[in-house]
Each structure stands twice: as C-alpha cells, then as structure tokens.
C-alpha cells in the first residue's frame, strides 16, 4: 500500500538549490550561504566519518590486502595471488561452512519472522489487555540477554540431562531423547533453535510497531465488506508491515550468515564440523592455524556473500518505494 509521495517535492538541500531566475547578486549570496552550510555539514559528519573510515573501511581494505598473501601474522608475508580464494572455494570444509550458514537462514530468519508475524497478530488482537504487555515482554527478553549467555543457557537445556530431554521423558518420548548439540543430525537445528529464540523478540517488536501505524478504519472497512481475520491479515496487516518485515529479514539473514557467538559457545563447530560456520572458521584460521591470508580471503568472500544475498532481498521485499 504505497503512499502517494512522488507528487510532493522533496524538501531539503537539493530542493532549495533549484535556481529560480534569481538576480546575480542574490545568486552569489545564496552560493556563499550554501558553501557555509556545506562546510558545517561536513564538519559535523567528519568525526563519525573518520571513525567509520578508520575502524570499518580500513580493516576491509587491509583484509583485502592480506588475502593475497601467505602470512602467519608475524614474519614477512609472501605474495600468493588468488591462491587463498581458490582454497576457500575448493576446500570441502570451508565450502561446508558456507552451506551450513545458508541452512541457518531457515532457523535464524524464516522461522522467527514467521513466528513473530503470528505472535504480533495475536498480540494486536488483544492489545488492550495486560496479557499483551506480558506477552510482548516475555518474547522480547531474549533480545536483552547477551548471546553468549543465551548460548550457555541453551546448551544446558539441550544437554542429555537438560530440560528438553526431561520434558520429553515426562511425556513418554524417551526414544527421541538425545544430546541434541552432540548429535550429527540435530546439532545444526538445535543451534538454530537458539538463534530463533533470540531473533523472534526483535522481529516481534518491529512488526508490532509497524502494525500500530496501520489505519484502523481499513480494518473496519474490511469487516464491513465481510472479511474474516485471515483475509484481514493477508490483505491489510501483511502489506502494512512490509517495510518492517524487510528490515527483520535483512537483519536476521545477516546474523545467520555472519553468526559466531551462539555457535562458539554452544558447539564450537562440533560435532565433526557439523555446525561449522564461516565466522567460526575465519576465527580458527586466523588465530589457531595462523593462516591470516586464508582467513582474510574467507572474510572477503563472506562479505561478498552477505551483500549478494541481502541486496536482492532488499529490492524484492521493499518493492519500488525505496
């Protein structure tokens, strides 16, 4: 439901700068004033820009530089061209890590966004009651907990004597109990559950705030036309929170592809590399194997991968408005 904004001229510097047949004197004055405004704007942006350049852009550039060397971090490096990139894209273990990251998108992004949509819709329908506040708080709490703590809590819950297995035993499902994080078949989904638990709160709050912006008269109109709750959801709510969903998906997909903390705490990539992800492998390569070159190449590949996934997603989800 795009707002008809294109007809209104956008305010701001560009709008003001449009020449409207001014006299030569006033043109010079306005240019002078604009220059002053520009300088002030640049001066205000400069400190942040400097930090950004030094702590974000510079590391990216140096990583790109390191990725062409064979370097152990201490002695003099040797130039190896694209060898590190070839290694990253051909070694089964490293490719496996990338595939694991894509599998994590299911748990870190699709599941929480879906759950948050359902939960937000339910909470909206009971918005007036105290239960809504309680539900919102409970679902948002995981966002406040540090990821490392979440990883530790869940690795206890998922251990062979943990809460999950105790519940399963209590309902007679002894046969399915196992060490969830130590089983080759369940380790990655189990890590995914931790991620989903953390992400659902963020998505919920974003989507709820989006829902409050939807005009209530739309629902009234739909109801007069005989729409049920399901039709309301798909025709009004879902398009109304499209922007928020786009943000949720973007943020959670990045967190899946660049995941590190939860996995480092819960499984350290085990068992048998079943939960190895690029972030963890870059850390191992750089600090245990001391292959700074390969680690840098892998991180550049990871960055490219994130951009390659997120940019089309943005286009797709935000539609033409952006």
């Amino acid at each position: 439901m795009p707002a008809p904004t294109s007809a209104v001229p956008a305010p701001g510097l560009g709008g003001d700068a449009r020449p409207r047949r001014p006299s030569s004197g006033s043109r010079a004055r306005s240019r002078h004033r604009r220059l002053g405004g520009d300088l002030l704007a640049y001066a205000l942006v400069a400190p942040a820009a400097l930090f950004y350049a030094f702590f974000v852009l510079r590391p990216i550039v140096t990583s790109a530089q390191y990725s062409f060397y064979d370097w152990n971090g201490v002695s003099t490096a040797t130039w190896v061209g694209f060898d590190n990139y070839v290694a990253v894209l051909s070694e089964p273990k490293l490719v496996g890590a990338i595939l694991n990251a894509f599998e994590l998108i299911l748990y870190f992004s699709i599941v929480p966004v879906g759950l948050a949509l359902v939960a937000a819709n339910l909470i909206r329908s009971i918005a007036a009651s105290r239960l809504a506040t309680a539900a919102r708080t409970v679902l948002f709490i995981p966002q406040v907990i540090p990821l490392v703590a979440a990883g530790i809590i869940w690795s206890w819950q998922l251990s062979s004597d943990g809460l999950v297995n105790q519940i399963l035993r209590a309902v007679g499902l002894d046969a399915v109990t196992r060490a969830w994080l130590g089983d080759f078949g369940t380790a990655l989904p189990a890590v995914g559950v931790i991620g989903a638990w953390v992400q659902v709160g963020l998505c919920l709050v974003l989507i709820l705030s989006g829902m409050t912006r939807i005009d209530a008269s739309l629902y009234e109109a739909a109801r007069l036309d005989g729409a049920g709750p399901v039709r309301e959801f798909f025709s009004i709510t879902l398009p109304g929170v499209r922007q928020e969903i786009a943000i949720c998906v973007t943020v959670t997909v990045i967190s899946a592809l660049a995941s590190f903390d939860i996995i480092y705490v819960a499984t350290q990539g085990g068992p048998g590399n079943r939960t190895l992800v690029p972030g963890l492998q870059i850390f191992y390569l750089a600090f245990f194997e001391r292959e700074i070159g390969t680690a840098s190449a892998f991180s550049i590949v990871l960055m490219a991968l994130v951009i390659a996934v997120v940019l089309p997603l943005q286009r797709l989800l935000r539609g033409r408005e952006s």
Binding site: R58, I60, T62, Y69, G73, S75, A77, I292
Partner: peptide, 21 residues
C-alpha cells in the same frame, strides 16, 4: 573522496605485512 581516503590509509603500507622481528 571516502573511497579514496580509505584506500589511501589502507594501502599506505602496501608492502607485504609483517616484520623480521
């Protein structure tokens, strides 16, 4: 200018990283 700036600081030491101790 941003790209030029960061490239400049990044490539200031374009020599291979590391030292001989």
């Amino acid at each position: 200018s941003g790209v030029a700036f960061s490239a400049a600081i990044g490539l200031a030491a374009c020599a291979p990283p590391g030292s001989d101790g």
